[in-house]
């Protein structure tokens, strides 16, 4: 049943997200073309010879800055849109009239929750792929417009050195930090699921406000517990450590345990509400 549920979940969300990704790529092409044209105007050689050329250089500079800013905004907007759409899918599937179909399917609540989670992960992986392609498209435009310069070579060298130096400082703690990031991301998602479920359970009207309030209360409580743990456990342990790598490893490990506890708590809470206390309209 999980495969079938996932198929329909992806189909339901794809009708908005696929066009969004296509728009994102199309805008990247537009930004790339803009960088190609105006970058050449700004960085091109011999442009500063006449007053007319100087004006062109200023315009080119402004347009290039705007295009780079537009690209950054595009990436942020797409990420937020993926998030909003997937959270909205959770709400509509379980707390609107659509729930009359959802809850009469021969599918377990665990399967329903896993479907939503896996679909969100898939769309974020899709977002990552689209972002990489978009960045490549924009980079091609930038290279055509600005041209390969010595500066680019220097930048590559600096990035390479930085990576190597960070590797020396952080060492194996990077792995723990990566695990912590993944667990924390899932915990944040399940916190939202729980806030929606609890908010809809306690309110028949003004459900959106109820869910938002619930989110702030629960996330506030989680942050408080996290800060207490940092103050009481992590700082005393890691305070006198000269080894940054070990200190970061311990900090990440404790954070991961806390995030895992948040994840499990929110999952169980969501499961109980969806199994026993759904307050359908």
């Amino acid at each position: 049943m999980f495969g079938k549920s996932l198929k329909y979940e992806l189909r339901a969300s794809s009708r908005i997200l696929i066009p969004l990704f296509i728009c994102s790529l199309a805008l990247s092409v537009f930004i790339s073309v803009g960088l190609g044209l105006f970058g050449n105007m700004y960085f091109g050689e011999g442009n500063a010879e006449s007053k007319f050329s100087q004006t062109f250089e200023v315009i080119g500079g402004v347009v290039v800055s705007l295009l780079i800013m537009a690209f950054a905004i595009l990436l942020i907007v797409t990420a937020v849109a993926v998030f909003v759409i997937m959270v909205r899918r959770f709400y509509t599937s379980f707390f609107t009239d659509e729930a009359y179909l959802t809850f009469t399917l021969p599918v377990s609540v665990d399967c329903h929750i896993m479907t939503k989670t896996v679909a969100t992960v898939i769309w974020y992986v899709g977002y990552g792929v689209v972002t990489c392609i978009s960045a490549l498209i924009v980079a091609i435009g930038a290279v055509i417009g600005i041209g390969p310069s010595e500066g680019a070579g220097d930048a590559g060298h600096i990035v390479g050195n930085l990576g190597s130096e960070l590797g020396d400082i952080f060492g194996e703690s990077v792995i723990f930090m990566g695990i912590n990031y993944i667990v924390s991301s899932f915990a944040s998602l399940f916190l939202i699921y729980f806030a929606i479920s609890f908010g809809c359970m306690v309110a028949k009207k003004h459900r959106f406000i109820s869910c938002v309030l619930c989110y702030f209360v629960v996330s506030g409580a989680v942050s408080f517990i996290g800060n207490m743990a940092t103050s009481l456990i992590m700082i005393p342990i890691t305070y006198n450590f000269d080894n940054v790598d070990l200190a970061l490893t311990i900090t990440s490990a404790v954070s991961t345990v806390l995030a895992a506890a948040e994840l499990v708590g929110c999952y169980i809470g969501t499961r109980i509400i969806l199994s026993k206390n759904v307050n359908l309209p």
Binding site: M1, K4, K7, Y8, A12, R15, D97, E98, A99, Y100, L101, T104, L105, P106, V107, P281
Partner: peptide, 30 residues
């Protein structure tokens, strides 16, 4: 749930679907 066929008072169909899609949906799940 796999033995009970329930018709609620409310319309629960997804508006974005075609009629054939919702038939396929039921065929897949039941």
């Amino acid at each position: 749930k796999s033995m009970v066929s329930y018709l609620p008072e409310r319309t629960y169909l997804n508006d974005w679907m075609r009629v054939s899609d919702i038939v396929e949906y039921f065929d897949d799940f039941y």
